[in-house]
Design a protein around this nucleic acid. Structure first.
Lengths: 144, 144
DNA sequence: TTATGTCGTAACAATTACAGTTACGACCAC
DNA sequence: GTGGTCGTAACTGTAATTGTTACGACATAA
């Protein structure tokens, strides 16, 4: 699979902001988060823009600007993040329409869509079981 | 996600061969399968090569050559196919190493790997619940 | 032995997605 | 105003996937 790192970076971002706010800070900048994630601030701003669309964060502009959470980490699940930053389905269908004159070519797409649907439901349920609080606790539990 | 169609095309291929053999034929050619899937025979041969490595099919060469199943469809699960044709993990880590001086940057990778590990296990269990026989029955059940 | 049809595989092109980067206007606290 | 940050467009580099051409290897049958 040509897996991407969007969910990982988004989780990193939210965990970073959550911890930062617990340390008493008001807002976090994309610059700070990008340094932690070792990437470019624009990459972080793009992801944060999608998280904002999903209502998970908000941003302030001007001097002293930055990002803050709109919800507690406990109430944000990986499914929320996944839905916010992952566009498409897990498995793709044929690029070109299969031969509709062939029994298999005719039935394969609805059949696979049905099967994939069930599998994605299970994946979503599993993602929903993990909160960003769980992620942060896991992060902090890693021995140094 | 930049989802690919490998699992879909591989399932199509196995279902096609399985049905063809039930109709009394000995071997199927990549040409026939490619026509049904509306793609290039080389694409099918490449996938079949990986399925052969996994022991799911075998090939004959020479005149009257082609492909046949080594197992019944009932005993091939989508997990077998997935493992045969999908190389990497579902979710990727950061491209560049996060800042190891930052608490989050230090702990995020092991934490996410742990979480992703559990999720992938669930996905695998779900894929293992579906056999290629189920797929073919679903295909044949689609109303015309 | 030769002709034929298919596999096996390398090589390359086309397309797409992702991530990184630069640039610059918009915005707002001071 | 000044300065720092967001918001976003535009472009590049890289990699994966898929499609395509080409051709040797192989085995069967005439």
């Amino acid at each position: 699979m040509s897996a991407n790192s969007r969910l990982t970076i988004a989780a990193h971002t939210l965990a970073w902001i959550g911890l930062y706010q617990r340390q008493g800070h008001d807002v976090a900048t994309s610059e700070q988060i990008a340094t932690s994630a070792n990437t470019n601030p624009v990459v972080i701003r793009r992801l944060l823009g999608e998280l904002r669309k999903a209502g998970l964060v908000e941003s302030r502009r001007g001097v002293g600007a930055g990002w803050s959470l709109t919800r507690e980490l406990e109430s944000i699940t990986l499914l929320d993040v996944y839905d916010a930053v992952e566009p498409g389905p897990l498995f793709a269908m044929h690029r070109a329409t299969p031969d509709q004159g062939c029994v298999v070519g005719y039935g394969i797409r609805p059949a696979m869509q049905h099967i994939y649907g069930g599998i994605e439901e299970t994946l979503r349920a599993e993602l929903a079981r993990v909160t960003m609080e769980d992620v942060l606790l896991d992060v902090l539990a890693v021995p140094r």
